[in-house]
Design a protein around this nucleic acid. Structure first.
Lengths: 161, 161
DNA sequence: CTGCATCCTAGTCGATACTG
DNA sequence: CAGTATCGACTAGGATGCAG
């Protein structure tokens, strides 16, 4: 899923996109979920590719969960607190995901040079805005859970017959 | 990101994922209602889990791409057309993703009993609505590409120093 | 044309052990 | 406490070959 990303990270020339919104106002969020049949990304196939890539990365399971936990917490959380709240995550994945999110500018990592170590993680404005953007999907999911469950049952029944 | 899904589809027991199994009515556990107040899903931790799961599945790379291609096409597309438009997808993944989406009620599969075979795929209203929900994320991604790129460069530079 | 079955590999995740 | 390092299990996903 991340070939393109990898390429970009490595420095390959894949078009440095100057931008989608160079001069536009920063991250206004309010989940626009618009109505049109066509997508808002017909700008440039290159940008589209990057966007897809970005989405793919950001739509990772743990990223999503961490995003929500941090959003929910409303403030900084320490490593251990996070691992407690995100049930089922291994500390490896926690570290890894946090690093990625930090790299992508979604979370801020504050280190207190004390013993024992203390590190606090919090959402950056960017991270927060992403959380809001996902709100639409979140709502969709909550709203259409039954529909999906139903479709699935129907499908499985059809298969089994 | 979709291990859990795969597992469930296969019928494995991979502890963790709550019983979402297709036919069985949701297990109503007497779980304390959660405490947060910021997200739109503070309905029930159970639902939250399902929603997370659902999102995890639906946020898959190929699903996203197919969703967009179908959305963009505005009408039914044949298997081969799809494979042409979603660059880089193997036929295995195409079939697999399509099946999953069909199972989840996102796409409709119309088979013409002719020779050679002809099958058309189109978005169901549910699938279309999901596309719209993702619109917010899509916009966020397009809008914040540079921010993320920047954050990443900065991060990498910091690491390298 | 559509799509299932098979094989095979690269990457991913989890558990464990160790350190500043 | 907050990680890093390592190893092993698992599997997503590409390539091929075949069938309806």
């Amino acid at each position: 899923m991340s070939e393109a990303l990898q390429a970009r990270v490595r420095g390959d020339t894949l078009g440095e996109t100057p931008a989608t919104a160079a001069g536009s106002p920063p991250v206004s969020a309010a989940v626009p979920v618009s109505r049109h049949a066509t997508y808002p990304t017909h700008l440039d196939p290159r940008i589209e590719a990057l966007v897809k890539d970005l989405i793919g990365r950001v739509a990772d399971k743990w990223t999503l969960l961490l995003l929500e936990v941090l959003e929910e917490a409303g403030g900084p959380l320490r490593f251990t607190r996070l691992s407690e709240r995100v049930e089922g995550i291994s500390q490896k994945m926690l570290t890894q995901t946090l690093r990625q999110m930090e790299r992508d500018g979604l979370v801020h990592r504050k280190i207190y040079p004390v013993i024992p170590p203390k590190v606090e993680y919090s959402l950056t404005p960017l991270g927060h805005s992403l959380g809001e953007a996902f709100c639409g999907v979140w709502i969709w999911a909550a709203h259409n859970l039954d529909a999906v469950e139903g479709a699935r049952s129907a499908f499985d029944a059809r298969e089994t017959e």
